[in-house]
Simulated scan of single mutants.
Amino acid sequence: MEVSERSKGVFPAKFINDYLWLIQYSAVGFYFLLTFGVLYSCIFVAYPQVFDTLEQKYANIIYLMYVLCNMMGNFFLGSITDSSFKTGYVLSDPPKTWMFCTKCNQHTPPRSHHCFICRACVLKQDHHCFFFTRCVGLRNQKYFIPYVLYVFLGSFHALRTILVYLNTTYVPLEWSFYCIFSYLFPGPIYNWYWDYGDVTFGKFVSISVLYGCFSTTSGCLFLFVGEMFLVARGQTPYEFGKGIRKYSQGVYNNYKQVFGKLFPLNFLFPLPNKTKEEKSPWGEPTFYRSI
């Protein structure tokens, strides 16, 4: 059988070989830079000005640390968990639903697709995540979904807190040319240089963090809602586009297959558990080991 449509590269191979490492490390660098920028802006700049009591300040620090631990835990687990299928076996009598990947020179089970970035077939491929530096699929989707949820919660918290801080100490938020200019580059640099709006280093960093928080808040909310919707339907993005729903086993079972029996706990703290889909017909087959 021919390679599936998802196996076809979108970019030229030369571009991938020359610049893929730059894209991957730039994404990871942006993630860590924004994370530490949020921590600095919230804890050392905004909290002392926004909250009047130590109880309020410490409560928000505890919340931010809880979000950070969940975010970093799922980031680490998702980054080290590989969903690729690299048996290298060419079956003499493969199941009718299996495909043959000419890139990997092996038979692959249903719902797997070749990733031209990972250069491997990925089980139940969802998409390639540049932050994880690998594909999100069968084994690490349960980490990716809580990860984007906590990135959203942290970004939204920082966005709201920093806006309150800047509204009272920098330029009041209003529909005016000076306000828009002061919050959009190069306005903050101009104000910093000419000493308008009392721009300190902390305020400048906070304004810069706002841009990242706004993009991650909206982007992660969209990703989380989309992923939860697809899991509920028992579909991957590819299957949703093709209208394939034959793998759905009901909403509850679909969630249980991805997150496990106690799937709500995955959203409270990182759980390095093995997905139940490993034993399903469209996951990693148990019989290939005996070949």
Rank of each mutant, 00 (worst) to 15 (best):
M1I: 06
V3M: 01
S4W: 00
R6Y: 15
K8D: 05
G9D: 14
F11R: 07
F11M: 14
P12R: 11
F15P: 03
N17H: 10
N17R: 14
N17Y: 09
L22P: 01
I23R: 02
I23C: 03
I23H: 07
V28W: 03
G29F: 01
G29R: 04
G29I: 00
F36R: 00
V38A: 02
L39A: 02
Y40V: 01
C42N: 01
C42E: 02
A46D: 00
Y47K: 00
Q49A: 05
V50N: 00
D52N: 08
T53G: 09
E55S: 01
E55L: 08
K57S: 10
A59T: 06
N60I: 06
I61H: 02
Y63G: 00
Y63V: 08
M65L: 14
M65R: 00
V67Y: 04
V67P: 00
L68C: 02
C69T: 07
G73Q: 03
G73Y: 05
F75T: 08
D82N: 06
D82V: 03
K86A: 09
T87S: 05
G88M: 03
S92P: 07
C101H: 02
Q106L: 13
H107A: 01
H107W: 12
T108R: 05
P109T: 13
R111L: 15
R111M: 07
S112H: 06
H113G: 15
I117P: 08
C118M: 14
C121H: 03
K124Q: 15
K124R: 13
Q125E: 15
Q125H: 11
H127A: 15
H127Q: 11
C129D: 03
C129K: 04
F130I: 14
T133G: 06
R134H: 13
V136N: 07
R139F: 14
R139Q: 07
Q141K: 11
Y147A: 06
Y147T: 05
Y150R: 03
F152W: 13
F152N: 06
S155R: 08
H157L: 14
R160T: 13
T161Y: 08
L163T: 12
V164Q: 12
Y165N: 04
Y165W: 14
Y165F: 12
Y165D: 06
L166C: 01
N167P: 12
T168P: 06
T169Q: 10
I180P: 05
Y183S: 04
G187W: 10
I189L: 15
Y190C: 14
Y193S: 07
Y193D: 08
Y193A: 13
W194F: 15
D195C: 13
T200C: 06
K203T: 08
F204S: 02
I207P: 01
V209R: 02
V209S: 03
L210E: 05
G212S: 07
S215W: 13
S218F: 11
G219I: 04
C220S: 15
G226P: 15
F229A: 12
A232L: 14
P237D: 14
E239N: 11
K242P: 04
I244P: 03
Y247N: 05
Y247D: 11
S248R: 05
S248H: 04
V251E: 02
N253W: 12
Y255T: 10
K256Y: 05
V258I: 13
L262H: 03
P264S: 05
L265N: 08
F269K: 09
F269G: 06
P272N: 05
P272S: 00
P272T: 01
K279F: 15
S280W: 10
E284T: 09
P285G: 07
Y288R: 04
I291H: 11
